[in-house]
Write a protein that binds this DNA or RNA. Structure first.
Lengths: 204, 204, 204, 204
DNA sequence: ACATAATCGAGACGGTACGTCCCGTCTTGTG
DNA sequence: CACAAGACGGGACGTACCGTCTCGATTATGT
């Protein structure tokens, strides 16, 4: 747990150790360039120049531009969501779903994240992103759901994984696929979403 | 309806007309290269060589590589989903959701689609993809949902758009974001998904 | 004969032909950069920028920087030496030897030539330089020597090739190896050299 | 006399003294790499690795790669030429010229020497090479020539420096410039050369 | 004996140049 | 006009070296 998103360092050997300042200046330059110029403007040359670093210094740490982006983005994502263990399950789910929405609404993250979702080409990168970013969040939702089952607020035969999909999927899908005309999701959408997942759409 | 994904042709003018053979050989070479080499292997030079075509001939038809990919992908996507107008709403929704799942399970489409979802950079491409691929499918689901409301199978205060998100979102999300270890969704997942959307997860 | 020092062109094919303007602008930029910055300042990037040309355009014509330098230098070397067919052999030899000295005294050529002499690594380049620059000059001297033998000015058992070495060798050797303290050879050195080769150093 | 080509050592001070083993292993690695990979293969990184030495250890001893090469080459060159002070001048000159030829015939030296002749760019290196390698050899020839003048074997008005050029120049020139198709000079060429210099080419 | 100080191997560092690949445009000759 | 071929200016790529700089460990010397 709490696995920090840092470049892998060589085994502590005999030579000069890698500079931690480089790590941070590269990550910061990455985020700055992404914010200012967008993904297409993030060339390794420009990045190295911006970070005041040789290109080799970057490649010594990250094998790929995408791997670097993952780490840089993880820095942005480290926003701990507070979930009360006393309120109703409904309120906790709203809060967790809200954190997904807010991340998607963040201009920088929402511009970069799709690139990572799209990293199906790069199996390793995709796995990394899932382990480091997606899974921890899913785990937190699963926890809340299990609490709901235990307290009989939710059905006992609940499929936990699928329910997580039902909470996160629509928000991600909307943000990525249907984000035309700059429409952004509101909090009320999220609240309504949670309620619908809880009660279903069938007439009763 | 049935808008074909073809390149815009010049107004019928004086000189030699554009060859239809070029259109097809380019599209076919695009799909072949994508299937064999993946997105990174689809360079315009390689494409032209593979199609036996000059690069200018491609640019004469499509302004962008992405536009070409959209058209090529649309070719793969033109699978009309049959929806009975007699069965239950539940069965129709299952059928429509299944078509989403099948598309995602297709190895080629699932490699290219993320790129299109991620096309947030390219506003125009994103709009094009939405108009040509996403919206028609959403419209069909909306139709079924409205029928369900009319027949009192579904709640009258239903948010149609959000319900579509609830049906498509989880599948897309799972396919793109959580598709680790090669796990693929099954038909039973889709059926269960539809049932959960209909009935909710709250204990009653 | 009269083999021009030009980059090899592809067989006249169907595509766009190579631009002659590029040839010249590249050669000119090469000579300019060499004159201004010297050999170490002749980077392919700087050259391309100076010539207003993409790097690929250079590599399309010359496989190596050295090959390019040979061609550029050949441009400088195309100075036809006038040899009277009426004067004495001694005067003709002085004139030919003088042209060797003058070339060595030329600041640009004398800076680059050694690099080519030193191209022993690159067998092909060395051969090229010999064929294109050295041999033609040796042939002209050989001609004069044969005339001298015919007219009984020179010994009949003369080793022509070695005599050429005796005329050119000392000048080249002095220029390259002993060119310390900026000392330059004078015309009188050349005249004295020819006379010594003719008469020998032995006391008589 | 017999100035050894060794790196300058720091004044005998307090800290750990420089290891003599490093000196030799670096020089040996230099010669080995030059022999195996040629000049372009002699990178400082490769050299350090081959010598089992840190790069700083090399730079602590030699300011430049070229300076190192000079020293390494001097090791190969320290072949004392024996010149009888009793034989004829002609025989002594043949022996000295032979040593020039043999050095040129040595595959390693002949690969490196041109680089040093061509060191016109690097004034300092060139001077160093001249002082350490060229001048001593010229001095020995000058000595023999002066003896010849004294003994009336040679003309009294002899230009000593130019005569040295006449003996060494042709051999060097042939070796460097005209060494095409792997032709190598023979001893008989050298003997004939000396005789021609002594007697001239003019018919008598 | 022990601190001092320069050495050692290792290798990271900021840079520069390399030669290749691709992009999107332009220029040929041939239908 | 369209077409195949392919050259063009430009930009980014990832690698190789350069010469300098830290590291921790080692090794003689002068106290």
């Amino acid at each position: 747990m709490n696995v920090r998103a840092l470049p892998k360092h060589a085994v502590r050997g005999r030579g000069r150790p890698r500079s931690a300042e480089c790590d941070t200046s590269i990550i910061e330059a990455t985020l700055a360039l992404l914010a200012e110029e967008g993904v297409p403007g993030l060339s390794m040359d420009a990045l190295a120049a911006r970070a005041g670093v040789g290109k080799a210094t970057i490649y010594r740490r990250w094998p790929t531009k995408d791997a670097l982006i993952v780490d840089a983005l993880a820095r942005l994502t480290d926003e701990p969501v507070h979930v009360s263990s006393t309120g109703t399950v409904r309120d906790d789910l709203v809060e967790l779903a809200e954190s997904v929405r807010r991340k998607g609404a963040n201009s920088l993250a929402s511009r970069i994240m799709p690139r990572l979702f799209a990293a199906g080409d790069n199996e390793e990168l995709h796995r990394l992103y899932y382990e480091r970013v997606i899974r921890p969040r899913r785990d937190r939702v699963a926890e809340v759901l299990r609490r709901g089952v235990a307290s009989s607020e939710l059905r006992a035969d609940l499929d936990i994984e699928q329910t997580i999909d039902l909470l996160a999927g629509p928000i991600v899908y909307r943000t990525l696929v249907c984000s035309h005309h700059g429409v952004q999701l509101s909090r009320s959408y999220v609240e309504s979403l949670v309620d619908t997942v809880l009660d279903g759409v069938r007439k009763r």
